[in-house]
Design a binder for these strands. Structure first.
Lengths: 138, 138
DNA sequence: CTGCATTTTGCAACATTGTTGCAAAATGCA
DNA sequence: TGCATTTTGCAACAATGTTGCAAAATGCAG
């Protein structure tokens, strides 16, 4: 794990610091998306709020994580699985939010469909977020 | 217009007040979704920030407007076109965000596709937000 | 039209979330 | 190990959202 963490950071040309190590570890351990607040809490009192913001910002820019828009507009972050280049997240999977347990997950195997738009519109990115009841809760 | 405004409010069992009138008017005039901040600004200095929050809350509950999740997680609100019952918004259209002009619109004619989820997951609502370049900007 | 119960508003105060500048500390490279 | 560069933590601030409560507005009955 530690090895993997350092590896990811180096590949992204980020220097290896305690906060980045810790926050990346949280993402690797998590099986669902996390809100900023979750991350702050889970990281313990070790890190300043500002550091968490800046670390997430750096991870976003490097394509290590991506954000998930939610209907209640709370920001969630999740690890990018692969082929996410610098600053260019290629999100082709559907996100799921359970209305019971509240957990947000990436359904990596469910791809976003192509949406046919009216004449004149150009698609650059499509976000699909499904809300409902997850495997565990049903 | 004024007639329509009063009509909508009465149908939703909301008493007709200045702030509700004004804010509903903004929605009826707007051809795109508005952020809370837009509404506050456009309503002028006439209304308290808190009143705007509470008015939007009331409109949401009554199904007069709906929220649109955006990738940058800024909350946007737009009028519901029809068949939105009390507290039960039935959102079956796709939302579009232009990366150039920043405008968020409801593509009422573009319906959200059905997403087939893995065994065990139950869909209650599907949100589709497409980002790209709009008719006007391309 | 008037009076009155009820709802809504505005204010104040507060909590949360996010941003910026800068000195001190940590990183990584020679 | 030393040093240039990056990152962190702190402080201060801005923006966003929430709550309680008294004053004002609404709408309904008479």
């Amino acid at each position: 794990m530690e090895e993997q963490i350092v590896d990811v950071l180096k590949k992204s040309q980020l220097s290896v610091t305690d906060s980045r190590r810790k926050i990346l570890e949280l993402f690797l351990q998590a099986d669902s998306a996390m809100a900023h607040h979750d991350i702050e809490t889970k990281a313990g009192e070790k890190f300043d709020r500002v550091t968490v913001y800046r670390t997430l910002q750096a991870f976003l820019e490097k394509g290590i994580i991506h954000t998930i828009p939610t209907p209640d507009n709370s920001v969630k972050y999740a690890l990018c699985k692969d082929n996410c280049e610098q600053g260019h997240h290629h999100d082709d999977h559907v996100h799921f939010i359970c209305k019971i347990c509240g957990i947000t997950t990436c359904l990596d195997d469910v791809h976003v469909p192509e949406i046919k738009l009216p004449r004149g519109y150009k698609t650059q990115q499509t976000e699909v977020v499904v809300s409902g009841i997850c495997k565990e809760c049903s």
